[in-house]
Design a binder for these strands. Structure first.
Lengths: 339, 339
DNA sequence: CTTGTTTCCTTAAACGTTTAAGCATATTTT
DNA sequence: AAAATATGCTTAAACGTTTAAGGAAACAAG
């Protein structure tokens, strides 16, 4: 079944391909196409089930109507959901999405950026990995339209969509204080990524504001590459000694899940012995015997904003950079006990 | 920063674009290009940082080196992981992936198929939704290369990758029998999809083989569209009456997670009061206080097989259809108690 | 010295669109 | 009646590649 082209329709209608093109792209008015012949062309196109060739169109227009999406880890439902909303929103705007997962690896990220650019995507939505500053700067230098989501580099002026990480963390920790916790620990990633830094800062400032002096001693960081082991160590440290922590704030869902697995294995009861609070929702945390209180990131809004900003940048190259900060909400459940 | 084309290189080297093309696609031998000029062309290409235009290439070759992926629900980690392995494997073969999530909706699935075909994907990998038989048949009639994954329609001769659903279910139920359970229930989806049917059949046959007469009375089905409510109802039915079930086999991870949420809320203890076993792994089921015994589907293998079969079909249009059945394994944990 | 062969390069068409420019013919305006 | 405008279509170039065909020069063989 050979693909039907404009030429086939033109031949059958006994006109030139130009005319067919005008009609099928609804430019009959500007091109002053006769009503009858327009109708005829449409009928034939329909009869032959004509489907325009996007590739030829792209070559001509220099635009592919495709956006590239690079997420940090597509197997994490947080990013899976982001991907879904972005794909939906893109489709609503007649764009398709090519995607890749960088798996938090700089090299893979660089690779993906190259592949996607070679595929002539019109723009990129990226959750940048640690150490990808240069890649991002280069995109900027090349004037490729792009938007960062979830994370960004404060030193690089670029459009991004993020949440109020500092305030959210501050708020979460304050909640723990309100529910009577005295020694609040935090488990985060060992990373230079700014969003995690902000969450740490929110934690520290909240402690300070409530005159809790635990300072840095109760703030632990795990390496992404040695997650399980580092988390175990962190928790051991937090829960040992004369004054063990009575609450832990996890900086992401994967930290919380891995941490709670270990806490389970230690036989520690939530919230009686230990309060737990985390960033991000997850089915695992719903199903937990003591559903975990969490900071909800409005994924739908984030995804939509990312697509909107990107498409605006694509359409208007001169558009100024946009920093969008979206508010989170704290969803209180059982894992912190009650006040 | 204008894109560098073959013409730019040709101009700078003082040769025709043809020569440049031959060199840069490593056809110097066949085209008998002079060594010196080849070296020069390469040097200039490198200096100008030439990146081939995939779109132009695709238009010429009629191939886009892109595959379309339609998953049932990208926010489900099972499909997220499938997507990841497919993307990885595709990239290794110099293919990129355009994706969409059908959300188990026939109309959306049809939409996506059209969009992806319009984008001239070279082939499709699809987890077909219920009722999409016609869409699949049409793909077949149009001779579009495609591979079904996770599910398939027995009445449509098409390549697919699936697991041994019947045997896996049979094995899972047998395990429950071995651990001493007497009244084994099942919660599945209300669907005509074959893979779920096979899981149900495996359940029933296993009961039969072990002379358990519970027959259909303990087999409950929930509608995808009313998941939470139907699951609650199913579990209520299973656990009520004079002879409540002492074990439940869930047909998928989402059923298990939703079901366990409800079971939790009823205060029922696993595995003492009730044994639980399910298809698919999930962090939620790891974190559960009594980690859930499950049927593991080898996602990596499935994804790789799907890409391999699809690329073979793309390369060789005459290739015969391939049915790949991959073995699962039962991962035994605490949720069924011990023998 | 012709003829044949090899070597190295160019020409030009093609893929399927879009769109500016042009060209008849018909109609209106002066 | 001549000039201007409107109408309805076609021509042809362009987007960036690939690749079959051809051609000129150099050399070898007869």
């Amino acid at each position: 079944m050979k693909k039907v082209s404009l030429k086939d329709i033109a031949t059958e209608a006994g006109v030139s391909t130009a005319l067919v093109s005008y009609v099928l792209t609804n430019k009959e008015k500007e091109a002053r196409v006769g009503e009858e012949i327009a109708k005829k062309i449409r009928a034939i196109a329909h009869k032959l089930n004509y489907q325009p060739n996007h590739i030829a169109r792209s070559l001509k227009s220099g635009r592919s109507f495709t956006i590239g999406l690079i997420v940090a880890d597509i197997s994490n439902p947080f990013f899976g959901n982001i991907a879904r909303t972005i794909e939906d929103e893109a489709k609503r705007n007649n764009y398709t999405v090519i995607f890749g997962s960088s798996d938090e690896n700089v090299d893979k990220s660089g690779d993906l950026i190259n592949v996607l650019l070679n595929r002539q995507v019109d723009g990129l939505i990226i959750t940048p990995t640690e150490g990808s500053e240069e890649q991002i700067s280069q995109l900027k230098a090349q004037k490729v339209p792009f938007v960062l989501i979830d994370r960004f580099f404060p030193e690089i002026e670029a459009s991004h969509i993020a949440v109020n990480n500092y305030e959210a963390a501050y708020h979460a920790v304050s909640h723990l204080v309100k529910t009577g916790r005295k020694r609040i620990g935090m488990v985060a990633y060992k990373t230079s990524l700014h969003h995690i830094g902000e969450r740490k800062r929110g934690y520290k400032e909240a402690l300070l504001a409530h005159h809790m002096t635990s300072g840095n001693t109760l703030l632990k960081s795990a390496r992404y590459s040695h997650l399980a082991a580092d988390i175990r160590l962190s928790i051991d440290q937090l829960l040992s000694g004369r004054h063990p922590a009575d609450a832990i704030f996890f900086a992401t869902n994967s930290l919380a899940i891995e941490g709670l697995k270990y806490i389970n294995s230690l036989g520690i009861r939530i919230p009686d012995q230990l309060a737990v609070i985390t960033f991000d929702e997850s089915e695992a945390l719903d199903l937990f015997y003591s559903p975990v209180t969490f900071v909800r990131q409005p994924i739908l809004e984030m995804g939509r904003a990312a697509v909107r900003v990107l498409l605006e940048e694509i359409k208007d190259n001169k558009k100024e950079i946009e920093h969008i900060c979206i508010d989170t909400s704290l969803v209180i459940r059982k894992s912190c006990g009650s006040r």
